[in-house]
Design a protein around this nucleic acid. Structure first.
Length: 645
RNA sequence: GCCAACGUGGCUCAGGGGUAGAGCAGCUGAUUCGUAAUCAGCAGGUCGUGGGUUCAAUUCCCACCGUUGGCUCCA
């Protein structure tokens, strides 16, 4: 029997040898670090026997599949520990996920921090016991019977939902058996380094109508050092949390009297937002966008036309009572219907298209209380919003132009390497969530896919993430906790032009329906600010820094010179201040460092005399004395280089 | 909205059934200093809010509000 290895070499093996045996033949080291195998492209456990010629790859922890196998087994070890300590717990599901694993349990009382510690100890024991993990297959009825006997109602339900003809497999380690497709590592001893991170509630099958189960999150690594490094990383990342750092650095605050999800943006935060807004508005006007200013609220009539009343009412702040009042108003959750009314206020020729209407738009969404998070999920936010009304022929180019604009914004803010793209599609099963027009969905999703493939964008597809009126391309960013949020979005809309009866007159004098692209360019400013704080750990890029330069006089004798230069810097547009307090220079520098100032220019008797600044630069430290005018010029140059490229 | 943890001066935190403490920040004064904290003094809290238990509650119990991590939802 011939087995082809990853490097193309072929070795002879007897029928019935296992993947692990072959790993051992190759090297003892590989045998030790092997976690799973890939046979003819299929991921399997190492205990899998090989019966015919095949291609074999031994997977280790550095391979994603190896990682998943190890962490998947770790989740079984957790479940086994839970069963030992809490025999009444019912098992739900327990997959490996990015950076770790979780397992959902149905228990009477939620797990406490002490429970997690005890479970971790028990898991260490199970790992110590080094129980072999073995696979068995059962017929559907036998599988159901086995799980029903054990009282595992959720597993019975899972078996019922498996498609006809599917192999039903179980994995057993010691006294513990779990329904599972695998693959797993060969024994519990391979799991080695585990850490339980937290417990949290989670709905069975992710549906809020179902029972809430208790989920335990954990992680596992092959090497202890890697686990420790990962935990250290988590702690480091949390220090960058915008919700902590943004408050510490006085970018924003919240007070109970104002309310949840309603942050108060402080001068530093407002300055960064203002800089971004000016940048966005200038750039968009250059690209042919026209700015509008529309009301923050409207009668319910408007939202009824757009469909928001039917699809989005729960998310809106409604002023008044539909039963009692003649007129019911609502704060706007979106800008589109308002700008559509502007479009409709006059007749349009195809010659005027594409028409690009932009607005720096404040929106209101009544998020549920548990959903608010710092500046990332709020109830009022300001979006650099726009709607492009175009002929069908123009849609493709316009879509590409929007992507180009977004790219430019991401380069300017330095976020381009931190984002991923998500092609958000509808879900035909969720009819209540989406406009019912299957052909239009199929058509617009196909069009969008063509554009994305055309420009060779690297994206993932996500079902059920579309807007109610059409598919989207979302630009996603992960926060310090690894949670993903949308930063920018481009949405294809085939429905609202119809709802609003928008049209243009074509070359033949006939009325035609335009296409509409909804898009946000620098996302919403609150969220973008949060993302920037996290990415830069509060050290804003020079062009966005609320305070770019601070002059530090060493003695009061240098104060006049500092004030004179402050005026000059301000005149040419550099945001500069003077720290005029009678404190020691070390104290002022320490404070400037904690505030992440990009530049501190220190002026003492020597500098006054020589016309120099002693330059302190963020990330570089003391650069020594430099010619004052030269410093100003180089700072101006540096700012320009960051924005124009 | 659901599951859980948490809530003590502006911030970080200690304490704990007999009405509260530290450091930083603030204020006042002194110091004029060369690259991460000068010294001294002063002031600041009805311990998130409201109920209950108790002779007595900031501490124990309940509700609400808020914060945090998940779930659901979403820019």
């Amino acid at each position: 029997m011939k087995v082809t290895l990853k490097d193309g070499s072929i070795i002879e093996a007897e029928k019935g040898t296992t993947a692990l045996d072959i790993a051992g033949k190759l090297s003892q080291g590989l045998k030790k670090s092997a976690l799973a195998a890939k046979i003819d492209g299929k991921i399997v456990s190492l205990s899998e026997t090989i019966e015919k010629d095949c291609a074999l790859e031994i997977l280790v922890f550095d391979d994603d599949e190896g990682k998943y196998a190890l962490r998947h087994t770790a989740s079984h070890v957790l479940a086994q520990a839970v069963k030992r300590l809490f025999p009444e717990a019912k098992l739900a599901i327990g997959p490996a996920i990015e950076n770790g694993f979780y397992y959902d349990f149905d228990v009477e009382t939620p797990f406490t921090a002490e429970d997690l510690k005890a479970l971790e100890k028990e898991m260490a024991k199970i790992i110590q016991e080094n129980l072999p993990v073995t696979r068995t297959e059962l017929a559907r009825e036998d599988a159901k019977k086995l799980m029903a006997e054990k009282g595992e109602d959720y597993k019975v339900q899972l078996i019922d939902e498996l498609p006809e003809g599917e192999t039903i497999s179980f994995y057993t380690q010691g006294e513990f058996t779990d329904l599972c497709a695998g693959p797993h590592v060969s024994s519990t001893g391979r799991v080695k380094n585990i850490k339980l991170l937290r417990s949290a509630g989670a709905y069975w099958k992710g549906n809020e109508k179902n029972k809430m189960l208790q989920r335990i999150y954990g992680t596992a690594f092959f090497k202890k050092d890697a686990l420790l490094a990962y935990l250290e990383n988590l702690r480091e990342a949390e220090k960058r949390d915008h919700n902590k750092l943004g408050r510490e650095l006085k970018y924003f605050t919240t007070v109970p009297e104002v309310g949840q999800g309603l942050p108060l943006i402080m001068p530093k935060g407002a300055k960064v937002m203002q800089i971004m807004q000016r940048f966005v508005e200038d750039e968009e006007e250059r690209r042919g966008y026209q700015y509008t200013k529309t009301p923050l609220m409207a009668k319910s009539d408007l939202y009824k036309i757009s469909g928001h009343w039917d699809h989005y009412k729960d998310g809106m702040f409604v002023l008044g009572d539909e039963e009692k009042d003649d007129e019911v108003l609502a704060l706007r959750p979106m800008t589109c219907p308002f700008q559509f009314m502007i479009y409709k206020a006059s007749h349009h020729s195809y010659r005027e298209l594409p028409m690009k209407l932009a607005e720096t738009s404040t929106l209101f969404r009544n998020e549920a209380s548990g959903e608010m998070h710092g500046l990332i999920r709020v109830r009022q936010f300001t979006l650099s919003d726009a709607h492009i009304i175009a002929t069908p022929e123009q849609v493709e180019d316009e879509f590409k132009d929007v992507l180009d604009l977004i790219n430019y914004m991401m380069k300017a803010t330095g976020l381009e390497s931190d984002v991923t793209y998500r092609f958000s599609k509808w879900d035909p099963k969720k009819t209540e969530k989406y406009i019912d027009n299957p052909e239009a969905w199929e058509f617009s999703e196909a069009l969008m896919k063509k554009i994305l493939d055309d420009i060779e964008l690297d994206y993932v597809e996500a079902d059920g993430e579309a807007a109610f009126y059409g598919p989207k391309l979302d630009v996603q960013f992960k926060n310090v906790f690894g949670k993903e949020d949308t930063l920018f979005t481009i949405q294809m809309d085939f429905a609202l032009a119809e709802h609003f009866d928008m049209y243009y007159v074509d070359a033949n004098g006939d009325k035609q329906r335009p296409y509409i692209i909804h898009r946000a360019s620098l996302g919403c400013y609150e969220r973008t600010l949060a993302v920037l704080i996290e990415k830069y750990a509060g050290a804003m890029p020079l062009w966005l820094a609320p305070e770019q330069v601070r002059f530090l006089p060493i003695t009061d004798r240098a104060l006049e010179t500092c004030k004179k230069w402050e005026e000059i810097f301000k005149k040419v547009g550099v945001r500069a201040t003077v720290d005029s307090r009678s404190e020691k220079i070390g104290y002022k520098i320490r404070e400037g460092r904690t505030e992440r100032l990009p530049y501190m220019l220190i002026v003492g008797d020597k500098e006054v005399e020589d016309g120099n600044f002693a330059v302190w630069k963020r990330g570089k430290g003391d650069l020594g004395p430099q010619d004052a005018e030269g410093v100003l010029k180089s700072i101006l140059q540096e700012i320009e280089d960051l924005v124009i490229f």
